[in-house]
Design a protein around this nucleic acid. Structure first.
Ligand SMILES: NC(=O)c1ccc[n+]([C@@H]2O[C@H](COP(=O)([O-])OP(=O)(O)OC[C@H]3O[C@@H](n4cnc5c(N)ncnc54)[C@H](O)[C@@H]3O)[C@@H](O)[C@H]2O)c1
Ligand SMILES: NC(=O)c1ccc[n+]([C@@H]2O[C@H](COP(=O)([O-])OP(=O)(O)OC[C@H]3O[C@@H](n4cnc5c(N)ncnc54)[C@H](O)[C@@H]3O)[C@@H](O)[C@H]2O)c1
Lengths: 225, 225
DNA sequence: CCGCGATTGTACCTGCAATCACAAACGCGG
DNA sequence: CCGCGTTTGTGATTGCAGGTACAATCGCGG
């Protein structure tokens, strides 16, 4: 469909020497640049960005320098320009299709969330195994049965999926997604998936964050468990 | 303003020399141990845990060794015992009260989520600024106006909050929470908060994960933005 | 046209995180 | 009771992430 396909290399082999941890910070920078754009600023500096994000200016400069020279000495970075460059690097200067499985509480909240589109993503399909959920309309999309996953994933050339099913079902559903062509999964189920090497999984589990926090607190809880 | 509230030790001072990154992995270990317990296993090894989590056995052993000697050579770790030890270390051998602000799509999904309690947390209150949301019933809790935040936080001695309001409101709401005695915030709004040093903020933003993933993908999106 | 404050990009250095490797300890079977 | 396979806990080692420091460059004002 859209093809200035930049020579694609098998994603495992070509890990540009750029560290993954650096890639992980780019979306944060991008998010902050969009905020500054909304505020109408034209330029910023590594110092200002660092202050906003609570990290050092040197780290920001070094991270960006992996990809080119985007700033001007004495001035800083042009915000719309840097924004566009980061979008290109992360390949979000376009909209990616995303499929989701699990039309429960969380899945429906995500499906009706309107904050994806302007950051490069659109949920194009939602699947569930419960017969009573099939056919439900959520915004522009309709809940479909699992059998449709292979069909839809192939038709849309979708590579990214969200998993919002109970933990007990997550492993099996992920296998189905991967068979159908998905290679990137965002998993909300509180479980670590076992997947082939060429599939990337990231996790969101609020309890992990809570438990990290309580380590540093002094005890003051409601009741013993 | 906030006085007899359970005050955190300034987390800088009490930083047992244990690295924060180690603490961050403990909840993952704990989650996996609970899974193994459900499966009825009695013992496990750093090897098995590492395989389940995709990390090295040595790292698991070293992480645990910061807190004591929980295993037995030749045998491994007793699962219920290690589970209990980790719960103690993370202080989740009890239930922590959590307040939440924002009763929108996401907030209501979280409020009705039943996966918090058995991992150490309970959402005890939900606040919103919209008059039409006030009084809504969600499971056991009722949506309250923002004015109640200081009262409720102090009464419950709650230290942990979830922020599920629009990005534009997040900074102001966080200030109100902190004034009221909150010192740990899980922020779902796609924005970096500015908070005092003794307050810990963690973030959940699915788009950050998506954008991290697309860096490694070959382009195949729907349309240019 | 020049000098000055500001800011970048980068070479160098430091420190810590992750891995390696192994002695010590355990269970078991004979 | 001993010897063997297993697994832990930990000192030693490696590798890399982040910080430091500064020369190079820019805009601007005089
Ligand atoms: N709701 C939240 O706020 C929240 C918060 C944190 C984590 N989570 C996690 O997200 C996941 C979903 O949570 P939820 O609250 O939406 O649960 P839910 O029970 O409301 O919804 C789960 C949905 O998945 C569907 N489902 C079950 N098995 C399936 C299968 N094999 N294939 C396809 N669909 C299947 C169910 O029909 C249901 O619609 C869970 O793993 C949960 O632990 C949810
Ligand atoms: N819905 C999702 O799946 C999703 C996904 C990712 C991130 N988020 C983020 O989570 C946050 C909430 O998302 P949502 O979809 O629930 O939005 P929403 O619009 O459905 O709900 C927001 C709620 O916050 C309330 N609110 C607004 N201003 C407030 C204020 N000053 N004080 C208290 N309450 C206020 C509104 O009345 C509303 O009830 C947003 O920042 C959003 O970007 C949501």
């Amino acid at each position: 469909m859209n093809e200035p396909a930049p020579q694609v290399e098998p994603q495992d082999s070509v890990r540009n020497d750029i560290p993954d941890i650096v890639i992980g910070r780019l979306p944060i920078y991008l998010r902050t640049l969009k905020l500054l754009m909304e505020r109408g600023s034209e330029v910023t500096s590594s110092q200002e960005l660092g202050d906003l994000l609570g990290i050092s200016s040197a780290q920001i400069r070094k991270d960006l320098s992996h990809f080119g020279e985007f700033g001007k000495q004495g001035t800083g970075y042009n915000i719309p320009f840097l924004n566009k460059q980061l979008e290109k690097i992360l390949k979000v200067d376009c909209v990616w299709p995303v499929v989701m499985v699990g039309a429960g509480n969380l899945g429906t909240a995500l499906a009706s969330y309107n904050g994806f589109e302007n950051r490069g993503f659109r949920i194009v399909a939602l699947f569930d195994s419960a017969p009573e959920k099939i056919g439900q309309q959520l915004g522009a999309i309709t809940v479909q049965p699992l059998e449709e996953i292979p069909v839809v994933v192939r038709r849309t050339h979708c590579q990214v999926a969200v998993l919002a099913v109970p933990a007990a079902a997550a492993q099996a559903v992920s296998a189905l997604l991967i068979e159908s062509g998905i290679n990137s999964i965002l998993c909300y189920a509180p479980i670590t998936l076992s997947v082939p090497e060429n599939v990337r999984v990231e996790y969101i589990d609020p309890v992990i964050h809570f438990q990290h926090m309580t380590y540093y607190l002094r005890k003051g809880c409601i009741e013993d468990a």
